[in-house]
Design a binder for these strands. Structure first.
Length: 825
DNA sequence: AGCACGCCGACT
DNA sequence: GTCGGCGTGCTC
């Protein structure tokens, strides 16, 4: 073959050029350019040289326009695998995102244009003069002087026509190695290590060499004799010795101190081994069922483990990962960011050590890239991480685990607006891997799919150690008010806290709202302080004495006189975690109280510190938002107080009962995990609501049945797909008129639906529930579409809103299109 | 997004 | 005449 055709995604944010461009591969580049490699191509009228990524290579090309040639290839190995290219293309199609957005999650973190290839000489003893050709000799000559060199520099220095072929052949021989980095210079971190020098002699001989007059040296000698090498720092720490002693030993020629290259490793290396637990009978059954499927090569099988809180799902995950590891395949474990706590990390790292990479939002760019590279180069076999870890660049993926499957954080709210669960399922299908999901409160969609047979449902009905689920007591706050109690703690909750404090047990108080007061208002004229940029009332934060907008983050000083009627009757309403904290401190001055929410955990390590204090029982009462509801496992928590279950319940969103049920069940599950029985006190103004009633009984199935009936009746997922089109911009009337135009075109384009029914299926356009955010007015169109029509609707929306085939005036108008959004707010 | 082309008004 | 204002349309 003398020529091929490459489809290239050029790196350009503009939507008009967001499509694959075809380029000609000819000459020496045939067979060298591969899918997933970056190339340099001439682009535009000025033939500006830009970088792009090859997503497909074809042998034939139909169209008759003139093609330009690929100028050069930047990589010697594909930066992304075929499967991940496939996955990205699926994402762009499925979630209507641009190509460049869809490829972002699979590309190396940071700017992919800045990735550089380095070539390194790793083993010159393998050079066989007879077997290498002239070009290879030329390259080796350059590299021998440099040891490690930037590929670009190497190209300039040895001027070999087809350098990639030479590199590949030398790499195959094991003489050189190529690695990638985001830096252009070799900048490695070194650490001093100590190695035992003398080989193959008995320990007794070593002791003789050191001499009995140096007991400390003997100790070090014996220690190193066994483990061969260790870092200087850990040796000094471990044996409580000094550098002088070690240096003395080096003088005797027993050991050698050297510089060892270290990876920037964000995982703390002092994590203890997390020992393997024997599975209980019910755990074993679940584990065995999945293992059987793996052993019988039922590739692409999906499982849902529905296990009550505290039923030991993590140990099943760990043992599954171990089995996959035995098969030489890789595993991805997805956890919600919020539960990416030291506890989860400790378990995986504690069990599998340096085979694990952890990806979370607090990593720096450099750390993120290092982890990505370690995965890509096969140095780790397991990844634990939040949503985006589903794209970990493994080459032999065997298993994806999604813990707390129901969590909303698995749906991305930024482009591409993908659902990590759907992406995981797709990736498992592409790579013939297994998908295991787990939750105590599965999402309605996933549970429905498991009942329909798409997913194998496995149940864990009892907690390990036979602890019982905590008793939930529902308190009607209306009645409390009637009884003359105006405080935020009911009599029952107050007494329970008191009793637990006396018994030296720990307490968790949960309120899903941060800040002190949720809104500030003038009692005379009713004015409510709202954010200038958003249509949102501002929350008062006492610790900073500021009013903060929780949507755009703007902070202002609280007014002392009403800006409308000039009265000074400014009052603070609504309860947030700060106020709960203050009130609890007043009521229980002797107790140690800690608050955990976004405001107290911004500093690196602050989250870990609170959890550590909790573990060490330095905290009596932990007050927090959602953060306290997930994954925390403290044996001495016997009381959980839910201050107001209504905060999520009353949102005008079809998922709010589901959220409430999940949140209540999850937070209740924090109680009574140890040897002592747990109790939950749930305060609410709607005690009769089904999601609260079933949560009280820990009855998921009845809850599911009630919810699914409503979803069916009112036409919501899983019976229908929702597509939300949000149209926004600074000019309200322009936004509104575009929204109406778009709506009309959609109505006209949809065929086959009865005209009267259209209002049931295409809703809007209406001003979004949050009418203005960050100075943008927002209008919304909501479309309900059945599974078999979703693709044609995707095409319609793509044509109207993205390709703009109707030539509407979209100046200063932006679109946010979300397929099956988390909420319709 | 860039970049070039093009059509029109203001200037040495 | 011709310089440059920005509106329009294309990029394999």
């Amino acid at each position: 073959m003398d020529k091929q055709f490459a489809q290239v995604i050029v790196n350009n944010k503009a939507s008009q050029v967001d499509k694959p461009f075809t380029y000609l591969i000819d000459g020496d580049l045939v067979g060298v350019v591969k899918e997933g490699m970056r190339v340099i191509v001439p682009f535009g009228i000025g033939n500006k040289m830009i970088k792009g990524i090859v997503i497909r290579i074809e042998d034939f090309f139909k169209e008759d326009y003139k093609l330009k040639r690929i100028i050069d290839v930047l990589d010697d190995k594909p930066l992304i695998s075929k499967e991940l290219i496939e996955l990205s293309l699926w994402i762009s199609k499925n979630y209507l995102s641009s190509y460049i957005d869809a490829f972002q999650p699979v590309l190396p973190p940071g700017d992919f244009k800045q990735v550089n290839t380095f070539v390194e000489l790793i083993n010159n003893s393998k050079i066989d003069i007879m077997k290498i050709n002239e070009d290879e000799k030329k390259l080796l000559y350059v590299i021998e002087n440099e040891k490690k060199i930037l590929l670009e520099d190497l190209k300039k220095k040895c001027k070999i026509v087809n350098i990639n072929k030479v590199l590949n052949s030398l790499e195959d021989m094991g003489i050189i190695e190529t690695t990638i980095d985001i830096k252009t210079t070799v900048e490695k971190k070194y650490e001093k290590w100590v190695r035992f020098l003398v080989k193959d002699i008995p320990l007794i001989k070593v002791k003789e060499l050191i001499g009995s007059r140096s007991p400390k040296q003997l100790e070090i000698g014996e220690y190193l004799y066994n483990i061969k090498e260790t870092s200087l720092k850990s040796l000094i720490e471990e044996l409580n010795t000094t550098l002088a002693t070690i240096k003395a030993l080096e003088k005797k020629g027993i050991i050698h101190i050297f510089n060892k290259e270290v990876n920037r490793d964000p995982i703390k290396n002092n994590i203890e081994y997390y020992k393997k637990h024997t599975l209980s009978n019910s755990q074993r059954k679940v584990f065995q069922r999945i293992l059987d499927s793996i052993n019988q090569n039922e590739e692409g099988n999906k499982f849902l483990i529905h296990g009550v809180t505290g039923s030991g799902k993590t140990e099943i995950y760990l043992q599954l990962v171990e089995e996959i590891l035995k098969l030489g395949r890789d595993s991805i474990i997805l956890v919600p960011e919020i539960s990416l706590t030291p506890q989860t990390i400790e378990r995986f790292v504690g069990r599998f050590g340096n085979k694990v990479a952890v990806l979370h939002s607090k990593l720096s760019q450099g750390e993120r890239f290092d982890e990505w590279r370690r995965i890509k180069e096969g140095k780790v076999k397991i990844v634990v991480g939040a949503r985006s870890a589903v794209f970990a660049p493994f080459n032999n993926l065997g298993l994806i685990i999604i813990d707390e499957e129901h969590e909303t954080t698995y749906k991305s709210s930024q482009n591409p607006k993908y659902d990590a669960i759907e992406v995981a399922a797709k990736r498992c299908e592409l790579e013939k891997a297994y998908l295991v999901m787990g939750s105590a409160t599965p999402s309605i969609e996933t549970y429905y799919n498991s009942l329909m047979g798409d997913i194998t449902l496995l149940k864990l009905e009892e907690r390990i150690n036979n602890t019982t689920l905590p008793q939930v007591k529902v308190i009607d706050m209306r009645q409390e008010l009637d009884n003359g109690n105006k405080s935020m703690f009911s009599k029952e909750l107050y007494e329970a806290i008191e009793k637990n404090l006396i018994n030296k047990k720990q307490i968790i108080l949960f309120l899903n709202r941060r800040g002190f007061s949720t809104f500030v208002s003038c009692r005379k004229c009713g004015y409510v302080v709202k954010c200038n940029n958003c249509d949102i009332s501002m929350t008062y934060h006492r610790n900073t004495n500021k009013l903060i907008c929780h949507y755009c983050g703007v902070a202002i000083n609280p007014p002392t006189i009403c800006p409308v009627c000039k009265s000074n009757y400014i009052k603070y309403f609504g309860v947030g975690t700060e106020k709960v904290e203050e009130y609890a401190r007043k009521l229980f001055p002797q107790s140690r109280i800690m608050r955990m929410d976004m405001d107290t955990t911004t500093k690196k390590g602050s989250y870990e510190k609170i959890l550590d204090d909790m573990k060490k029982k330095n905290i009596d009462i932990l007050i927090g938002t959602q953060m306290v509801s997930k994954g925390l496992d403290f044996k001495d928590v016997t009381l959980v107080g839910i201050i107001a279950a209504d905060t999520t319940l009353n949102l005008p969103d079809f998922r709010s009962p589901e959220r409430t049920f999940q949140l209540v069940t999850q937070v209740a599950g924090r109680a009574g995990r140890g040897d002592f029985e747990g109790k939950v006190i749930l305060q609410t103004y709607s005690p009769e609501h089904y999601s609260i009633q079933y949560a009280k009984e820990h009855d998921y199935i009845s809850y599911y049945n009630a919810e699914i009936a409503l979803r069916k009746e009112f036409l919501y997922p899983p019976f229908i797909n929702l597509i939300s089109i949000l149209i926004y911009g600074e000019n309200n009337s322009k936004v509104a008129s575009i929204a109406k135009e778009v709506y009309n075109i959609i109505i006209n384009e949809i065929e086959g639906i009865n005209k009267e029914d259209l209002f049931k299926y295409v809703i809007g356009p209406y001003p979004a529930p949050l009418e203005r955010i960050k100075n943008n007015y927002r209008w919304q169109i909501l479309i309900k579409v059945e599974g078999q029509y979703i693709n044609s609707l995707r095409n319609i929306i793509n044509r109207i809103c993205i390709l703009n085939t109707y030539n509407l005036n979209f100046d200063n108008i932006k679109f946010s299109i979300d397929i099956n959004p988390n909420s319709i707010l």
